[in-house]
Design a binder for these strands. Structure first.
Length: 424
DNA sequence: AACGCGGGGCC
DNA sequence: GGCCCAGCGTT
């Protein structure tokens, strides 16, 4: 990019003072486009790498050739940009195998961007329940409403317009543009960045700006020379990362890109698996909380979390910091002494570790008086439950599966053991 | 650039 | 029990 381009130890020629030709050759080697002993032109090598990967991925069925490696994922059977958009949103930080049933149910219930735009947020969240990162659902919902309002219901092809949609970041723009609209755009997700970091043997911390820039440039360059379906190229790279170039134990022995992989050339699978360099792990904070399960024998009291908080908009058994146990009970209209300890739940999140003590008791008339229908926000007395909730409701056991909830609630109700049969 | 945000599969 | 996943928005 400029004369300051710092060089790794293996490329002294890139230091200030080296001539432009040496710098260029060095850059090629850093990017892994050279094969030992064969100084072909980079374009040829990239083209060969591309062909090898696409053949491995297997676009469409083709008799005689080995079976395609691509998984038969349901969103690969549609060309509907809306369906692809939903899949890409669900796939953010979520494994494909996990997404499949959620995506099928979501598309069945809300098959078009119009139906999503008109749906109640509670329905959208219920369809998302269990998938995690619920902000994705709220942003998808909001974005669908704007798409209908601004673009007449069709997802815009324009990348700027796509990028302005809630929840659609750099990766998702690339994914939608290349897969749904067949544009030659890079989509760099965790898989692609890992694959490219290994092919190019990038030893910088992958989270550093330098590393990101290199990886991004790599993706752009590789995508730009593709002659086939841009969506196939995007997905071939990701599929390689998911199935072969795995984070921990890459299967270099069966990798179609092995001949172009600088990391493999440098140190085989043992070295390749050390890339990209991992960031040091942070310690998870432990949070001590309490949950109060109030029930009638056929129904249980749930509270809806305020928007913009953890689990925002979802229903759960009312909880509070352990230190606010008395205040939570009082807010729910029950006496702490009337509750018994049912057990404790440990819930691990990406950034914290929750220890939830589970208390159990019967619904009091005072509590019943505070319960309101689900759509009635800010009911009287709810404030006393704490700043975390904006509604209370008495929910029959049979209605639990249709309520948007976090998996923590399943665990809490399981420990409370209200019912012989599973409640969910 | 670092952090908040979920949940589950796999070692 | 830790790691990581078809990331995004905020600060």
């Amino acid at each position: 990019m400029d004369g300051r381009a710092r060089a790794k130890g293996r490329c002294p020629g890139a230091e200030v003072g080296a001539d432009a030709r040496e710098r260029k050759v060095c850059r090629r080697e850093e990017r892994g486009y050279t094969v030992r002993g064969a100084m072909k032109s980079p374009a040829k090598l990239r083209s060969a790498l591309k062909r090898a990967l696409l053949a491995w991925y297997g676009r469409g069925g083709n008799g005689g050739r080995p079976a395609r490696a691509a998984r038969d994922l349901p969103w690969r059977r549609t060309s509907d940009p809306y369906a692809i958009w939903v899949s890409e949103t669900m796939l953010q930080q979520t494994r494909a195998a996990t997404v499949v049933p959620y995506w099928e149910r979501f598309l069945r219930e809300l098959p078009t961007v119009q139906t999503l735009a008109e749906a109640a947020e509670s329905q959208v969240l219920a369809l998302w329940s269990g998938l995690g990162y619920y902000r994705r659902a709220r942003m998808l919902h909001a974005a669908a409403r704007r798409v209908v309002a601004l673009h007449g219901g069709g997802l815009p092809r324009d990348r700027e317009a796509l990028s302005s949609l809630e929840g659609v970041g750099a990766y998702t723009v690339g994914a939608i543009a290349s897969i749904a609209f067949k544009e030659r755009v890079a989509a760099v997700d965790g898989n692609v960045s890992r694959v490219l970091a290994r092919i190019a043997a990038i030893e910088d911390d992958v989270t550093s700006a330098r590393g990101k820039a290199l990886v991004q440039a790599e993706a752009d360059a590789l995508a730009a020379i593709d002659e086939g379906d841009p969506g196939d190229w995007t997905q071939a790279l990701m599929e390689l990362g998911a199935l072969v170039c795995a984070p921990r134990q890459p299967r270099c022995g069966s990798c179609p890109a092995r001949a172009w992989c600088r990391a493999f050339a440098r140190g085989g699978v043992d070295y390749a698996s050390t890339l990209p360099r991992k960031a040091p792990k942070r310690e998870k904070a432990v949070v001590e909380r309490v949950a109060i399960v109030l029930h009638t024998g056929t129904a249980v009291v749930l509270a809806r979390r305020r928007a913009l908080t953890l689990y925002g908009g979802l229903w759960e058994v009312p909880t509070a910091p352990r230190s606010a146990k008395r205040r939570l009970a009082k807010g729910l209209g029950v006496n702490l002494t009337a509750l018994d300890v049912a057990g404790e739940v440990v819930h691990i999140l990406s950034h914290r570790r929750m220890h939830v003590q589970v208390l159990r008791g019967s619904v009091s008339p005072q509590c019943l008086a505070k319960c309101r229908p689900a759509e009635d926000r800010l009911a009287d007395g709810v404030e006393a439950v704490g700043a975390e909730y904006d509604a209370l409701d008495l929910v029959p056991y049979g209605d639990l599966p249709t309520r948007a909830h976090a998996s923590l609630t399943r665990k809490v109700l399981d420990v409370a053991n209200l019912h012989r049969e599973p409640l969910f």
